[in-house]
Design a protein around this nucleic acid. Structure first.
Lengths: 344, 344
DNA sequence: CTGAAAGCGCTTACAG
DNA sequence: CTGAAAGCGCTTACAG
């Protein structure tokens, strides 16, 4: 591997000259003839500046750590992947690399601590909430990062401490799926939440309960199901619920993936969507419109959330600002999986 | 940000002592009382060794560059994501980080060159072929990496230069989908390939033609379609083909995603799957079994391919070996989208 | 316009 | 068992 010293020697100039020319091709610090010599040496030796040496001496690494405090394959979640896509596109444009430090440990703050041990010296972080992160975990995580003192932004979490930069996906006024079901005439609605401790699920339950309350409809405890954001678990949860009596006429699922599990369960129970039971999903994953029937879903701007994370982070890195909050609203896409309730 | 110097000062020991203790807690180089002091200082100052300084002086970064020479969101491909998941899991276990250097440029070797400028000093690379990489591109890419002199492994490419480490997904003896269709009695079969120049598509075409040949069936040029590995493009390509006459009785698609596009096209043409046209996909993506009808598909061990990439790379990094080739076979999962051809 | 020197935060022989 | 010193490959004042 050629070093800057080799280039300098071959071109007959000082290392400083090479370094400065590399940073700015138009510098007047280096004369024309010498520039040509340097260029030539670089080409001949296929010189590439060492990333780590450069980061160390510049005190700027052009590396953003993506922190998903969860042991297990990250890239399997189409939800996260969509956000990361937006993040990547925006950050690449500014020349930043994305680094995923190794995850190990069980409790989320422990995993994060381990990840930070491999991510010291980075320019910024994007912290993702996962279904294994309770609100307390995330507060602990955020506090840890604040002590580190490097700019960061949180994705995929309901609003937290005011000092934290966050991009927040919220249902928004145009998207209330429970209200939509109630307006259609449904009175016995189930909520397929994710994981009991997850802030997203808790928020979903609160909102559903509140909306039901406005219609003087009860959201019964037995109608709050937990599908762990996974297809097969949602399927079992739904099956279990159906075994207790099929008086439900609608289900709102906090992810399209879980909605697919609900489709499966309903089909096994010989219940038709939507004539027996209406189903609503969330995210508008690419497969949603291709299901039979096409899934009514709460579209959420995930890619946009990713690029907003990048935007906030870039701003935080250049100005040191914190406490920025960006809110992104969802919207309801009505397709074929919802209908007025029929008497059975 | 605390440095090793701060820890040394606070604990009243030399920097060397801290560094050595950090590397090996059981060292006898540092006495018990001093160890305690160091621990305390580390905890109080929440010290984390600087990744870049450490990489530089150790000449070992514990960073693997994931090179996808393609400008555009990488994490949107569920195909790549599944491979990367396997890679990540195995590499994390050994304490490696995954780094995605920024992509810019149009031609694949140009993108790769740019990426390498941001990835110098890494311990190893995983190079992915994309649908925009011709065989010539990939040979150029491989040659470039060989000149860099750092261990690397290629994923998602048919067999290339012997010197290159590769994990190769091949159809394998148990998976020949064209033969399966022929055995069912189909005689007019279309192939939904990806992109004209992509080696994967070329290989798929060769194999399909060869198998057809064995049955004295012609794979007509007009029955070789290009769906660019995308749903909507596959849909249009299929629609265009159907407009020329619907004498086809079967389609093999080089990805499940394209198979979904074919489903759409067939449904728009009022053709039933499988009674009018049989459809086979590839990859066994998670949604394949949930389509209506459930998709017959060539299951390929993508996650396993990812962990094999990691395995090969780890071996290459410790031994310098090259020219390793790992072959992984697919297998045909027969579900509801295939049947014997009916006369129409 | 140019080079010699010090420094970034670590680690690794080396001498005791 | 311990510390002082040199070095990893860059960059950045500094002096000319």
């Amino acid at each position: 591997m050629a070093r800057i010293r080799d280039i300098a020697a071959r071109a007959g100039v000082s290392e400083a000259a090479v370094s400065i020319y590399l940073r700015d091709n138009d510098t007047r610090r280096v004369g024309g003839e010498r520039k040509r010599k340097i260029d030539e040496a670089i080409r001949e030796l296929e010189y590439r500046p060492n990333t780590f040496a450069r980061a160390l001496s510049r005190a700027k690494s052009f590396t953003i750590g993506v922190l998903v405090p969860y042991e297990g394959p990250v890239f399997r979640s189409s939800f996260l992947n969509e956000i990361v896509s937006g993040l990547q596109t925006r950050l690449f444009r500014n020349g930043y690399s994305l680094a995923f430090p190794p995850a190990s440990g069980v409790r989320s703050p422990v995993v994060l601590k381990n990840q930070l041990d491999h991510a010291s010296g980075f320019d910024g972080y994007v912290l993702f909430g996962t279904r294994f992160c309770s609100r307390g975990d995330m507060e602990e995580n955020a506090a840890m990062l604040e002590r580190v003192g490097i700019p960061f932004v949180m994705a995929n979490m309901p609003e937290l401490t005011p000092s934290v930069n966050q991009v927040i996906l919220r249902e928004g006024p145009k998207a209330n799926p429970i209200r939509y079901l109630l307006d259609l005439g449904h009175r016995r609605i189930a909520l397929m939440a994710g994981r009991e401790e997850s802030p997203d699920s808790l928020e979903g339950i609160d909102q559903a309960a509140e909306t039901c309350g406005q219609y003087h409809v009860e959201l019964a405890a037995e109608d709050i199901l937990f599908g762990d954001y996974e297809l097969s678990i949602a399927r079992s949860a739904m099956l279990t619920r159906l075994a207790r009596g099929s008086d439900l006429t609608a289900v709102y699922c906090l992810s399209d993936t879980m909605a697919m599990g609900v489709y499966e369960a309903l089909s096994e129970a010989n219940l038709d969507v939507p004539s027996d039971v209406s189903v609503i999903g969330r995210n508008d994953s690419f497969f949603a419109r291709l299901l039979t029937p096409p899934l009514t879903t709460v579209q959420r701007p995930l890619y946009e959330a990713g690029s907003q994370c990048a935007e906030v982070l870039l701003r935080a890195m250049e100005s040191g600002r914190s406490g920025m909050k960006v809110y992104l609203d969802g919207s309801l896409l009505v397709r074929g999986s919802t209908a007025v309730p029929s008497e059975r």
